[in-house]
């Protein structure tokens, strides 16, 4: 019996390969981690614009985790508590699929779903208007984010965002967010 008797690295590697997961990160989403992910996405073969879109979506997801995850760890380097979560990029023949997962406080679930539904229902023109309208609105009290992440994800991907909620514990749910990005540049 080895040190890792409950965890097979080989099986894990095979699972990643089977789902065509090219990148997965689990842990605290510090600034350095973001920079590293950015670098690895530069090599996306399709085009620079697609690479930048993937990067943009990953950054928005990672920064949501950083600020809003209901599971936090202290980062020595950053000198503050940082959110913990997971981000993975998988692909099929025509799309990249970017998924993030993190804990959130249960009461935060309904407004997030409502906002996602609203944004998913907007036409590209309306979405653009909504983005600009929200950007002009004052920064929300006590929230470091711009309140533009979901809108940006839908605009950059050209597809709706998908939310899945799983049971986690008494006070928290596990929040899963997925976006599909077309490999072929449209419009």
């Amino acid at each position: 019996m080895g040190y890792m008797e409950h965890f097979s690295v080989k099986t894990f590697k095979q699972q990643l390969a089977m789902k065509k997961i090219s990148l997965a990160f689990q842990g605290i989403f510090s600034q350095d981690v973001l920079a590293l992910i950015g670098k690895s996405l530069r090599n996306t073969p399709e085009s620079r614009v697609i690479a930048k879109r993937l990067f943009a979506i990953v950054i928005e997801m990672a920064q949501n985790i950083h600020h809003y995850s209901a599971e936090k760890q202290y980062s020595e380097k950053d000198g503050r508590d940082i959110g913990v979560g997971i981000v993975a990029i998988a692909e099929d023949d025509h799309h990249y699929i970017i998924t993030s997962g993190n804990c959130i406080v249960k009461t935060e679930v309904p407004p997030l779903i409502e906002r996602a539904n609203y944004i998913n229902g907007l036409s590209p023109e309306k979405l653009k208007e909504f983005y600009r309208e929200q950007r002009k609105a004052p920064q929300r009290e006590g929230k470091p984010g711009a309140n533009l992440g979901f809108i940006d994800m839908v605009r950059k991907s050209g597809n709706p965002i998908e939310i899945n909620i799983k049971e986690y514990d008494e006070t928290r749910s596990f929040f899963i967010l997925s976006v599909r990005v077309n490999k072929e540049l449209q419009n």
């Binding site: 930048k52 943009a56 928005e60 920064q63 950007r135 711009a146 533009l148």
Partner: peptide
């Protein structure tokens, strides 16, 4: 070459 939504604000 790239900026996030919060920089866009």
């Amino acid at each position: 070459s790239y900026f996030n939504t919060s920089s866009s604000r």
